[in-house]
Write a protein that binds this DNA or RNA. Structure first.
Lengths: 223, 223
DNA sequence: GTCTATAGTTCGATAGAC
DNA sequence: GTCTATCGAACTATAGAC
């Protein structure tokens, strides 16, 4: 789909830089990361980063789109497979949306957990280029899932489906970087690193929440 | 409750620095903000920031605890008032948790919307001092609300109530900085800046989600 | 308590050799 | 494509006068 260099083995250091950028950006955020730290992580000279990506912003963009694109392709593939087999349940749709975010596997990061922090930073930023990047990385995928939710849940209008989608993503994304908070607040009853338990509960939580939003409107409307 | 300087009018510039710090930190994040920009915003010399708060970290801490404390006091007051009047519904509890976050009013920020981005940055950070600050700012309040949820929803165990609390906060917090995303994804069917519509839907969504978590376990368990 | 001035680092980016 | 070397700007923090 995207333009790829015709050379069969594209310059290997370019990918190594992107790998290192993922680690450093995810650990320290955009502003907190430095080109020097990324160059060191990749084992190349700092100038090479500027040769390949021109600016820090350009490197961040390439890094972010690579990872987000990889995850979104899995999401869409799962959704398409489900749709071709019949009418998926709300739970199925949510699972196809959330699981790929924690099952990255192929690139060097702890289960995509820290990448979630990066998405949150980007999605709440107010710089124009960050909002644009967020839109380019996720809007197409989000539109597909919002449509799927409206099909699975007649009675859910577009505004409700949109807020519902954003709630689901926000609820799950904020729990992915394991900070020890769930363990502490639950007095040891659960573990942050147990992403499976978290995702399982998130699906139950989100499916019920979406079904409630599908009811036209409770009985009063205000403001 | 906290130690206050005995002087009736405490150095006014100290508060002005905190006000400016809120704006700059919320707009650019911790790493992206500079002491210079904060000093300029407060109209004082940069050295004065270090006199009052010693380091950038110290200033961030003071700023964050002041704002978080103010919001949490309102939350706890609302919860206590409800509890003294009988058994509040899940919706009431969630409303007491979410509304104060968007109705800050007294300090100079656009409805506390951008402060939410700061909370998200802090809650997903992995530096020790940031996790400690997060715990000091929110754990006591969170514990009260988790307990209230368990009382309102028998069948909700501590692990479920904890994840539920975290889901609710994550779902709502991620929507507070209005980025135009909801407007775009819904094709104009809703507006990001309409926080009342967002909060109203968040309460419906979250209440249903929490009730679903209160059911011991659906009927199958997988993975 | 508030200022000016500056020390000491670190940053993003570029020039230019190979 | 990759490197060394470096520029100029920004940063946090401190010293010291008032």
């Amino acid at each position: 789909m995207a333009a790829k260099p015709p050379t069969p083995s594209r310059s290997s250091s370019r990918e190594e830089i992107l790998d290192a950028a993922e680690e450093v950006f995810a650990a320290r955020g955009y502003a907190g990361a430095s080109m020097r730290a990324i160059a060191d992580g990749a084992g190349v000279a700092q100038a090479l980063l500027h040769y390949h990506f021109k600016t820090k912003e350009g490197l961040f963009e390439a890094m972010f789109l690579r990872r987000a694109g990889a995850i979104n392709r899995i999401r869409i593939a799962r959704l398409d497979a489900m749709l071709s087999r019949g009418r998926p349940s709300v739970e199925d749709i949510i699972e196809a949306l959330l699981r790929p975010a924690v099952e990255t596997g192929d690139a060097p990061m702890q289960g995509g957990a820290r990448f979630a922090a990066l998405i949150l930073e980007l999605s709440t930023a107010d710089a124009a280029w960050q909002r644009d990047l967020m839109a380019r990385a996720y809007d197409a995928m989000a539109t597909r899932f919002i449509a799927a939710l409206m099909t699975a849940l007649p009675g859910l209008d577009r505004a409700g489906a949109t807020w519902g989608y954003l709630f689901v993503v926000g609820a799950a994304l904020t729990q992915m970087p394991s900070t020890g908070r769930a363990h502490r607040l639950s007095r040891g009853a659960t573990e942050d690193a147990d992403t499976d338990a978290m995702i399982t509960r998130a699906i139950i939580f989100a499916a019920a929440g979406l079904r409630a939003l599908a009811v036209p409107m409770p009985d009063h409307f205000e403001s």
